[in-house]
């Protein structure tokens, strides 16, 4: 999310780019504000920007098993 809006929407959850995604296999929730340290993903990375090879840090399934929360 661009900086000019980021400062507004940190409070506003779950719309468009900063939407959280849930792993439908184990329930892990990817939060863009937090990123994924296990996978080397910095905070602020929207789900759509995660590489295709990214996998769930808990159960290791791929992006296609994730669903917007």
């Amino acid at each position: 999310m661009p900086p000019c809006l980021k400062r507004f929407f940190d409070k506003y959850e779950g719309s468009g780019e900063m939407e959280k995604y849930i792993c439908t296999n184990c329930g892990y929730v990817y939060e863009p504000n937090l990123g994924d340290p296990v996978g080397g993903i910095p905070p602020g990375t929207p789900f759509s920007a995660l590489p295709d090879t990214w996998i769930c840090p808990v159960c290791y399934v791929g992006k296609d098993l994730f669903d917007p929360l």
């Binding site: 849930i22 439908t24 296999n25 329930g27 098993l65 669903d67 917007p68 929360l69």
Partner: peptide, 13 residues
């Protein structure tokens, strides 16, 4: 969430 979205296939999409 795992039951509905994962096993049952009711994804939000």
């Amino acid at each position: 969430s795992v039951l509905f979205r994962g096993r049952w296939g009711y994804r939000r999409g």
